[in-house]
Design a protein around this nucleic acid. Sequence first.
DNA 1: ACCATGACGTTTC
DNA 2: CGAAACGCCATGG
Length: 113
Amino acid sequence: MLKGENTNKNNFFESVYLLVRQIPYGKVSTYGAIAAHLGSKSSARMVGWAMNASHNINESIPAHRVVNRKGMLSGKLHFTHPKMMEQLLKNEGIVVKNDNILHFEAHFWNDFI
DNA sequence: ACCATGACGTTTC
DNA sequence: CGAAACGCCATGG
């Protein structure tokens, strides 16, 4: 951010946000899938890290559609309200039970461009 | 420059 | 089959 604001990360951020935005309504994806699409399939942590930074930008990122490979709402605590993520998903017709998406594979989206 | 941390994932025990 | 450890890459102290 400071110190000359390197734009390197900006590209990474943009890539992540771009992919997340591609997730259609009622669908969800995983950090690993996004990371794999970025080239570093083992960098799923970076995706989550980018999501954390998504709070700092003005763009609208449907972060609630991104969960870990288990389909668990691992990042719900990072939302405005912990119940927000679950609420948003339910609003899209996704069944959430115990911080866990039911029929996760059915809602999974991996057809990124 | 080194150590610790993280919205993860895979492998090993 | 479940839990723990390791790997990964970038950031901050």
